[in-house]
């Protein structure tokens, strides 16, 4: 009915008495790179949690591709092509980098107990293709030398890369990136930004929560500002930067 890919209606969530998210209406268009910013406790991660199904809202509705996903389980939402990352990186510590990626790329039927017991040649072929794909992703992200390392041996930045790689191996339509640059050294942050930009250019819709304002302003097509759970500004980076409310609520506090 509209050209919006994700639509949030009258969404409310509070913890105890504290309002975490209270958004009347928010749309994300296909193929756009949107950053969500706001001071700590503005409800950015909670918004991600609600959209990706990891938390249940008190009120409101969320649509994805005009499908109501409000009550959907996280894994079902992910299967619709919307994949998220986490603020605190969640790699599979005691699996190798390659295994991390292959698990992420593997299909439901390939993972099934039945196929795995029967060990058909079909599965073997699928796994070979999967491995190739995983190697390609590692090459793109420049972590192929870590292929057989356990994920927990990676540096913080490399873990971010791995998590990103895991999210894109299945070519999702939407990526929700929760602070992809947090704790990453400046050099790697540059690389990551470029990768994110490339993904966007390839047609993936990206929503990104990020504290690094410089980076946000550089690559975002649109910036959404939250404060105390509510939407206070929404527009092109330049507009938002000059918005008085934003300056007061966020930039004005001298926070970064």
């Amino acid at each position: 009915m509209s050209n919006s890919l994700i639509r949030v209606n009258n969404l409310k969530k509070s913890f105890g008495g504290l309002k975490a998210v209270d958004i009347d209406d928010l749309n994300f268009k296909s193929n756009e790179l949107t950053s969500i910013i706001g001071p700590n406790g503005a409800g950015k991660t909670t918004l991600f949690d609600l959209i990706s199904g990891f938390q249940e809202e008190d009120n409101g509705e969320i649509f994805y591709k005009d499908k109501n996903i409000t009550k959907s389980q996280p894994y079902k939402i992910a299967r619709l092509g919307m994949v998220r990352t986490f603020q605190l990186t969640k790699v599979f510590d005691r699996m190798t980098v390659l295994e991390n990626l292959m698990f992420a790329g593997s299909s439901i039927s390939n993972d099934s107990l039945l196929q795995s017991i029967m060990k058909l040649s079909k599965q073997k072929k699928y796994e070979e293709l999967l491995q190739e794909e995983a190697i390609n992703v590692m090459k793109d992200l420049n972590i192929e030398q870590m292929s057989s390392s356990y994920a927990r041996e990676l540096s913080g930045g490399q873990k971010k890369l791995l998590e990103l790689g895991r999210s894109i191996i299945k070519k999702p339509d939407v990526l929700l990136l929760d602070e992809p640059l947090a704790g990453v050294n400046p050099k790697l942050a540059e690389d990551l930004l470029e990768i994110i930009q490339n993904l966007s250019n390839q047609g993936i819709t990206i929503l990104m929560v990020e504290h690094n304002i410089e980076a946000v302003m550089k690559i975002s097509e649109r910036v959404v500002v939250l404060a105390e759970g509510a939407l206070i500004a929404d527009g092109a980076p330049q507009e938002v930067r000059e918005n008085q409310k934003v300056i007061e609520a966020y930039l004005g506090t001298g926070d970064e």
Partner: peptide, 18 residues
């Protein structure tokens, strides 16, 4: 491999559509 992934981090498993 999938079971080991569950052992490591369930949230990540769910976020990947499993």
């Amino acid at each position: 491999r999938a079971l080991r992934a569950v052992r490591e981090d369930e949230d990540a498993v769910r976020a990947l559509g499993k």
